[in-house]
Simulated assay, not measured.
Amino acid sequence: MSLSTDLDQLARQRMRRARAAGALLAVLVGASLFMLLRERPQPSAGSATSSPSSSAPGAPATPTPESGYVPPARWTTLPEARDRIGRDYPVGWPHTPQGAAAAASAMFASVWDLDVTRATGAVDVYFAVGDRAASRRDAAASTAWLREQLALPRDGAPPPGATVAVQPIGVQWRVVDADNVYVSVAMRADMIAGTAAPLETLTVASTGHLRWQTGVRGGDWVALRTPAARMPRPAFAEPGTAAFNHARWRAIRPGG
Rank of each mutant, 00 (worst) to 15 (best):
N180A: 09
A73G: 09
G99I: 00
P94K: 01
S105D: 05
L199D: 04
D220P: 03
P79Y: 04
A151T: 14
L202E: 06
S135H: 05
L10Y: 03
A247Y: 15
N245S: 09
F244Y: 05
A186C: 08
L37K: 09
A56E: 09
L28P: 04
R118V: 07
L202C: 07
A223P: 03
Q9K: 12
V116H: 01
A139Q: 05
R174E: 15
P168I: 01
G170K: 00
V91T: 11
N180L: 15
A73P: 02
V176F: 08
R40S: 07
A141P: 02
D83A: 13
M15A: 12
N180T: 12
W145D: 03
E66A: 12
L199Q: 11
G161F: 07
D179C: 07
V164T: 14
P41I: 04
R14A: 08
F236V: 03
T241A: 02
A243W: 01
I169W: 02
H246Q: 13
R188L: 13
D83E: 11
I192D: 06
D88L: 13
D115A: 08
A165L: 03
A18Q: 12
D190M: 09
I192G: 08
T76A: 07
Y182G: 00
P63C: 06
T117Q: 15
L24I: 05
W249S: 03
M107G: 06
D179W: 09
W112N: 04
S135L: 13
L37Y: 10
P97H: 05
G240P: 10
A11V: 08
N245R: 00
P79A: 02
F108M: 07
V116N: 03
L36R: 14
H95D: 14
M15R: 08
L78R: 01
E148N: 08
